[in-house]
Simulated assay, not measured.
Amino acid sequence: MTDAYLALEDGRVFEARARAPGQTRGELVFTTAYTGYEESLTDPSYAQQVLTFSYPLIGNYGVRDERFESDHVQPSAAIAREFTDDVADWLASEGVPAIDHLDTREIVTSVREEGAMACGIAAGEDATPEDAVAEMEACVPMSDHTDIGAEVSVDEPEVHDGGGDYTVALLDCGAKGSIIENLTARGADVHVLPYDATPEAVSAVNPDVVFVSNGPGDPENFEAAQTVAEAFAGDVPLAGICLGQQIVASALGGSTEKMAFGHRGVNQPVRDLETNRVVMTTQNHGYTVADPGPLEVTQVNVNDDTPEGLDSEDLDIITRQYHPEANPGPNDSLDFFDDVLDLATSRSPVTAD
Rank of each mutant, 00 (worst) to 15 (best):
M1G: 15
M1Q: 13
E9G: 07
V13L: 07
E15L: 04
A16H: 03
A16C: 07
A20C: 04
Q23F: 00
T31A: 12
G36I: 03
P44F: 08
P44R: 12
Y46H: 14
A47Y: 10
S54D: 14
I58Y: 07
Y61A: 12
V63L: 10
E66R: 14
R67Q: 06
F68D: 00
E69G: 05
S70W: 03
Q74G: 00
F83N: 06
D85Q: 07
V87C: 11
W90L: 07
P97R: 04
A98M: 07
T109M: 12
V111L: 15
E113N: 15
A118D: 09
C119L: 05
I121S: 05
A123Q: 00
E125H: 13
P141C: 08
H145C: 12
D147Q: 10
A150N: 09
P157F: 05
E158N: 08
G163K: 11
A175I: 13
I180L: 11
E181Q: 14
T184R: 06
T184C: 08
G187Q: 09
D189Y: 04
V190R: 10
V192W: 02
L193T: 08
D196V: 01
T198V: 10
S203D: 12
A204W: 01
V205I: 10
N206M: 08
V212S: 10
G217E: 01
I241A: 07
I247D: 02
I247Q: 03
L252Y: 12
T256A: 09
M259L: 15
R264W: 10
V266Q: 09
V270K: 04
V270Y: 00
V279A: 10
V279C: 00
Q283W: 04
T288L: 03
D291I: 07
Q299M: 14
D311I: 02
E313F: 08
Q321F: 06
E325K: 03
A326T: 01
A326G: 00
A326M: 01
D335G: 07
D339A: 15
L341R: 08
S346M: 08
R347V: 09
S348G: 05
S348F: 10
P349T: 09
V350P: 01
T351I: 07
